[in-house]
Write a protein that binds this DNA or RNA. Structure first.
Length: 595
DNA sequence: TTAGGGTTAG
């Protein structure tokens, strides 16, 4: 392969090398990086060192870039150190290499060293430095890079400005991101993407959508980046119809074949309860990246199809795609929800073969799996033996299952462990309170809630919503603010009688307040999901499934009640809670009561 | 002219 390269066996200095040859070497280094032929690049490196060509600055820079693109940052650094004449391009190459290869601190350190040598950062170096701050979520350092950009006058550059917008967005500083965005003399699609991402990150989905609309209005050439972001915004707000319209725009502009767009679309359909849509997008995406595989696995897991998850995992392996920790998390959750304990344990152990260290979330899934099967002691053993510190989610998994299995002693132990971790999320206080309440110990239960109040936190309000055309109808338990409230409550009363005739009995143990029986029954009768379903019943035609989204977990009584609702009305009712889907049909739920 | 900024899946 090297035969046609210059034969320079005895190069004393760079000057003895014919000029036209080193350009050829540079081309070859670049193409090796692009085609990911690392071995060819390494051969070329050996050759240029031997022939003395590595002394030529252009060749040295190309070596740095070759290693950077080959994801070998430390070799890139070595090539940088061997480079005799370091221009600002040389510095730029090595700093961008660190920024792109998960060494943001080193990128910033090299910027410092460079400036100590009295070199000023330029418009190529500043974006890499800014990006590093974004990766580290270090707004403070990012601000000093911003100052540096202003001092050097590069803050007006569209690359520098866009990277600053993105950095502020990644650090969660949406106000500074917007200020930067507004002040920029020139903006392009990257600037807009960064800003949109910022809003989406902060959960300001409406602002993100507004910005996208504005971008379209300004005739900005939106691309696959923009589409995948905006679709994920729709997915997070479960705006199926809007998402479908944007998918139409993607098809028109031929961006629908992008695997990034595909991943967002799979997630959109999945989160909106349309598994068939997710499958179709997945099948039609020509080149599948890890993201779309993971999105598809998650979709099947959310829809309780563990068999398909395992099948997909095997298919994925056959296609040569390497699973990552997210892949395994999806597989474990699928096994957990399907009650496949042995399979779950198998996949947990399989992670070792792929040299993937289980995170606290993987352990939480395993603990939950064991806990659901009633193996509380074994679950505890997993926690005490795990090599990383158990987090709230791990102890929480044990706590919830102890409550369900009425082991209040172990539940209290798990709760103590959670408190030892320091700040506890509000949901966890509720879990402890539930543990006592389920055992009839209302005083302790109240104490746990008091602790929550003392910390100035409140339980997240349970909300359910239904999408009707492009409108979202939201309901909270017991409220009567909706314009059709009267009809909704009438429908519930009428349905309640039918359900009771069919054998439904309200399970009041899910009401946590210590009140008398009648009031308990009233509270539980009007949980938000029941109101939302009643709205669906009086609004949608009989053949249309009723899709309800809920921000919290469905309570046990509602879960049971909805089964009866599906029998009495003959409707398909799909409820997405904060975690997964429940498809109710003919008195059965797709989760097999395992949720 | 070799170097720079933005996406998905969790």
């Amino acid at each position: 392969m090297l035969n046609h390269l210059p034969q320079g066996n005895d190069p004393v200095s760079a000057f003895s090398v014919p000029c036209h040859n080193y350009h050829r070497i540079c081309d070859l280094l670049l193409s090796s990086a692009r085609s990911r032929s690392t071995s060819r690049g390494l051969q070329l490196h050996g050759y240029v060192v031997k022939s003395g060509l590595s002394l030529i600055p252009l060749v040295a820079n190309n070596l740095i870039n070759f290693y950077s693109k080959s994801q070998l940052p430390l070799d890139s650094r070595r090539a940088f150190e061997d480079c005799p004449q370091k221009s600002s391009t040389t510095w730029s190459s090595v700093i961008s290499c660190f920024a792109q290869n998960e060494l943001p601190w080193m990128a910033l350190e090299f910027l410092r060293i460079m400036m100590e040598g009295n070199l000023r950062p330029d418009d190529h170096i500043l974006p890499s430095a800014t990006k590093s701050c974004g990766i580290l979520s270090r707004c403070d350092i990012g601000k000093s890079v911003h100052c540096l950009s202003m001092k050097t006058g590069y803050d007006a550059d569209v690359f520098v400005g866009s990277s600053l917008v993105d950095m502020y967005a990644k650090c969660g500083d949406i106000v500074d991101a917007r200020n930067m965005f507004d002040e920029m003399p020139q903006r392009n699609v990257v600037t807009w993407s960064g800003m949109m991402y910022g809003y989406a990150q902060m959960g300001e989905n409406e602002e993100a959508l507004l910005l996208f609309k504005e971008a379209l209005f300004e005739n900005l050439a939106v691309n696959d980046y923009s589409f995948s972001s905006v679709i994920s915004v729709c997915a997070n707000s479960t705006l199926l119809e809007l998402g479908r319209q944007i998918q139409g725009l993607c098809v028109k502009s031929s961006f629908d074949s992008s695997s990034f767009v595909g991943s967002s679309l799979v997630s959109l359909y999945s989160k909106c309860g349309v598994l068939e849509g997710a499958c179709q997008v997945f099948d039609e995406t020509p080149v599948k990246n890890l993201g779309i595989w993971n999105a598809m696995l998650k979709a099947c897991a959310q829809h309780s199809d563990a068999k398909k998850v395992i099948q997909l995992f095997k298919q994925m392996k056959r296609s040569g795609m390497k699973p990552n920790f997210i892949t395994f998390l999806n597989v474990l959750n699928a096994c957990n929800h399907a009650g496949l304990l042995d399979e779950g344990k198998y996949y947990f152990d399989l992670m070792k073969e792929y040299r993937i260290e289980p995170t606290d979330k993987h352990y939480a899934s395993l603990v939950d799996m064991l806990g659901r099967a009633g193996k509380l002691e074994e679950a505890l053993k997993v926690i005490t033996n795990m090599p990383i510190d158990p987090t709230e989610s791990v102890w929480g998994a044990l706590l919830t299952n102890c409550t369900n299995h009425k082991n209040t002693e172990l539940a209290a132990f798990a709760a103590d462990k959670v408190f030892e971790l320091g700040r506890v999320s509000s949901g966890m206080h509720i879990s402890l309170s539930n543990a006592y309440a389920a055992d009839g110990r209302f005083k302790d239960s109240a104490e746990a809630r008091k602790l929550l109040r003392d910390r100035g936190e409140k339980k997240e309000t349970g909300l359910s919503w239904v999408e009707e055309r492009n409108k979202v109808h939201t309901f909270a338990a017991g409220e009567r603010r909706h314009e059709r409230s009267k009809e909704i409550y009438e429908k519930l009363a009428e349905l309640g009688e039918e359900m009771e005739k069919a054998g439904y009995v309200a399970d009041t143990s899910f009401v946590l307040r210590e009140v008398d029986g009648d009031e308990k029954n009233q509270t539980i009768r009007y949980h938000s999901e029941k109101l939302a379903i009643a709205f669906g019943l009086i609004t949608f035609s009989a053949d249309r499934p009723i899709r309800v989204i809920k921000n919290l977990r469905v309570c046990g009584d509602c879960h049971n009640a909805i089964k009866f609702m599906s029998v009495c009305t003959g409707r398909v009712i799909i409820v997405r809670d904060n975690n997964r889907f429940h498809r109710f049909e003919n008195g059965k739920c797709s989760c097999n009561d395992y949720w």
